[in-house]
Write a protein that binds this DNA or RNA. Structure first.
Lengths: 241, 241
DNA sequence: CGTTATCTTGACCGTCGTCAAACAGGGTGG
DNA sequence: CCACCCTGTTTGACGACGGTCAAGATAACG
């Protein structure tokens, strides 16, 4: 369970056992609560076991920018073990289950086992790559493409967990949160989403959200999953987006 | 010289010697040339020794988004050693001097010396933090604040290299490039910059760019240097922005 | 000194933001 | 079971920030 976070990172042999043997405690957070706050200092590393969360920052004018969406298996605050205080907030979108690991345990494991250290670095670098793509999205794409791109990213990332990219998934974000993620207002997100639905590219019901024309939708979204680095170095791509 | 990149990252003892002893070759690039391209595979790590460069990506519509500015001491493509192909381009802004280090040398050093591995991770995390702040800047601040923020970041980062934040520095970017960095058009960057100059917040001449009212300017820019993580964990701040 | 890149300015336009109100759904309590 | 909220969605009218197009002015460069 704790080892989830190493799966999509690097092929580790049976030092998976070491990860699974890490001392940790589990905590539960309800929807909307803060897991970490801007300015926090900590000596624990936390991993998201189930549920969804997001990173965000508030500007001097009180505007919020969502920086990334965390899905099960993601490491929440590795950064604070290597730098000083947290520079952003982490808040839950849904009820979440979180594992907390003491810093020392993780660090000694990292220095003992090169493969683990590599996995941590690789994971951090994938995060950075996603940040870069978001910058492109926010800075240089129009509202429609921007929203579509975000929805594609969801589908692609959730797909790794076994859900096919065309399949419905539950989107645990309000339109206000979607707007804060892509630099738009709630109102404009609504209009844009309505437009995508009207054009038959997005289908929505209680079960979740679906993309009837996945191939066309990806083009519309200017989406190419390469930046997610879903495959290992040298691993042949299984399903190509 | 090669060790520059470890200075602002983590206090390493005399394994600085190890860094300085790394096998490397030096290459020179002229202004505007590509150091790395989207899709590149490589087994070398490169470090920027002198000059300025920038990371960027092109959208499907041909629009460019600049992702970060590289200053001397920055590692250019650590990522490609841990992931697969490059997901963005790196291009020079000025003539540049680049050190190239074989992957194996760096990796063995990282696994032998924990402090170095930590420094690499910390450096990657600072990059990620800067990406996050840029997202906030591009997504949630108006043109004037956005431009001012970028200029503040320059001043703060160059300050580490000994230039005081109020001091003039040479801005090696065209207005088109500034626009691509903050998600604006050339024309609007021009108007916005003119506005800042007219209001006495920015002063420009052949020597470079200066901020006569640094304190006021930082407020106007909604700038707080914390996200740059310029100080070590536990190190008291020397000059507070 | 001519050629090209970059900067600057004006007029006009459109995407997206603002303000406001109505509507739907889900939970709570009387 | 039905008022009553509260949160989130939806829609309209209007305005503004920033984009587009185009031209001229400067500066950089061979």
């Amino acid at each position: 369970m704790v080892n989830k976070f190493a799966i999509h990172v690097s092929l580790s042999d049976l030092d998976r056992a070491a990860v699974q043997g890490l001392p940790h405690s589990v905590r539960y957070f309800e929807s909307g609560s803060y897991i970490a706050r801007d300015g926090d200092l900590t000596d624990h590393c936390t991993v998201l076991l189930s549920g969804f969360a997001f990173r965000h920052k508030i500007t001097g004018q009180g505007l919020r920018q969502i920086l990334s969406i965390l899905i099960p298996g993601d490491i929440i605050n590795l950064q604070q073990l290597y730098l000083d205080a947290a520079d952003h907030n982490v808040q839950t979108l849904t009820p979440c289950k979180i594992a907390t690991i003491p810093q020392v345990a993780l660090r000694t494991m990292a220095s003992d086992r090169t493969a683990i250290a590599d996995a941590l670095i690789a994971s951090t670098m994938v995060d950075a790559s996603i940040y870069r793509e978001w910058m492109v999205n926010i800075g240089r794409r129009d509202a429609r493409t921007r929203l579509a791109h975000l929805l594609c990213e969801f589908a692609a990332r959730l797909d790794v967990q076994g859900i096919a990219p065309g399949q419905p998934y539950e989107l645990p974000m309000t339109q206000e949160q979607l707007g804060d993620a892509i630099g738009l207002t709630t109102v404009h997100v609504n209009r844009t989403l309505r437009g995508l639905i009207k054009d038959g590219l997005v289908f929505q019901n209680k079960r979740g959200i679906t993309f009837p024309e996945w191939e066309i939708f990806m083009v519309e979204a200017d989406f190419n999953s390469r930046y997610l680095h879903l495959r290992e170095r040298g691993t042949p791509p299984g399903y190509s987006f």
